[in-house]
Amino acid sequence: MSVATEKTRDKRSGIGETVKIIIEALLLALVVRTLLFQPFNIPSGSMKPTLLVGDYLFVSKYAYGYSRYSLPFGPNLFEGRIWAEEPVRGDVVVFKQPRDNSTDFIKRVVGMPGDTIQLVDGVLHIDGTPVEREEAGTWIDEDTGREYTRYEETLPNGVSYTILDRGMLPSDNTQIYEVPEGHFFMMGDNRDDSSDSRVLGSVGYVPFENLVGRAEAIFFSVGDRASPLAFWRWPWTVRWDRLFTTVE
């Protein structure tokens, strides 16, 4: 065998090994994304101040078991959920909007199956009882410069988080919502700038099947509406204090 033939065979072997490694890496990434963690970015301000526009986070796909919407493109392979586990009141959840079953939304679970939900003068009521909240100063939106009043809201199970309020608006007094079995009531932490379960014709009650996963941690965050790919601007645009923080 000539030296040239030997070199050609080694080259082909090296290329084949590289292709094999790439394929294995892609398959592993597909399995992780489908069954374990899915990256998700925040495109709107409905969850401020918990989540900001430009936050990139990991969503655990296994937290509530798996439904058709756990799979890419949501193929109708089975009904309901496998290894189902209900969310805890207060979880921040990614779900498919019930109106089209394709658009990803992210909100907080405030109402469980069988609950009644109502806002009275901006105060969340669950089963007729007002949820505890305490004023916690003001908050300035870095994108708009708008000033909000901050409140620390504590749900009946003890989960606490910050919500924003910008004064009395029509959405601060609602009808009484009765959450059907197998559904959940979602609200944004930015209460006056969130399209959520209060809007029955758009989001409404979210079926358990539509839950994609639970928001776990922010792995990257960039402000000033900057592109995350503009790495030369990272020293000024990356929100370093938000990296690798948990979502609560």
Rank of each mutant, 00 (worst) to 15 (best):
E181I: 00
S171Q: 13
V120M: 06
I176E: 14
S202M: 12
Y151Q: 02
L200S: 15
T144P: 00
G204C: 02
I117K: 04
M112S: 04
V179A: 13
V131M: 06
E153K: 02
L124F: 05
L155G: 10
D192N: 11
I218S: 14
H183C: 08
D189P: 05
E216T: 14
P180G: 08
V203E: 12
A215Y: 06
G114H: 10
G137V: 02
Q97R: 11
R166V: 05
V206W: 07
T129N: 14
D100H: 02
I117R: 05
F220E: 12
R99P: 00
S202Y: 14
G137S: 03
T129P: 00
M186S: 08
A215R: 07
F208H: 12
S160H: 10
F219H: 11
P180R: 07
E209D: 10
R198C: 06
T149K: 13
D121Y: 09
N173P: 01
E153D: 09
S195V: 13
V206S: 04
D104L: 12
N210T: 04
G188N: 05
Y148H: 11
N173W: 04
F219C: 14
S197Y: 04
S171D: 13
R214E: 14
R146A: 15
L119A: 08
L211T: 08
L119V: 01
G167L: 12
P170V: 06
I117C: 03
F185D: 07
T129R: 11
I176P: 06
Y148Q: 08
G188M: 06
P207A: 06
D193A: 12
T149P: 01
V212Q: 14
V131E: 02
D193R: 13
G114F: 10
D115Y: 08
E132G: 05
F105D: 10
V203P: 01
V159N: 13
Y148C: 02
T129E: 15
D189M: 07
R133Y: 02
G128M: 11
L169I: 06
E134C: 00
D127M: 03
D115L: 09
V179I: 05
D121I: 11
T144R: 02
I218H: 06
V109I: 08
V110T: 06
S197I: 01
T144W: 02
E178S: 12
R108P: 04
H125F: 06
G204P: 00
P180E: 14
G158R: 12
A215S: 15
D104E: 15
A136E: 07
P156R: 02
D104Y: 14
E178Y: 11
D100M: 07
S171I: 04
M186H: 05
A136N: 08
D141R: 09
E181P: 02
G204I: 00
S160N: 09
T116M: 04
V109W: 00
S171E: 12
T162Y: 14
Y151G: 01
S221N: 13
G128L: 10
E147I: 10
E216W: 14
D196K: 10
L155Y: 09
D121N: 15
V199K: 15
A136V: 00
E147T: 15
D165Y: 10
T129A: 15
I117G: 05
Q97I: 12
E134A: 13
P207K: 01
R214S: 10
S202C: 01
T174A: 14
M168R: 08
G204E: 01
V159H: 11
S160L: 06
Q175I: 06
T162D: 09
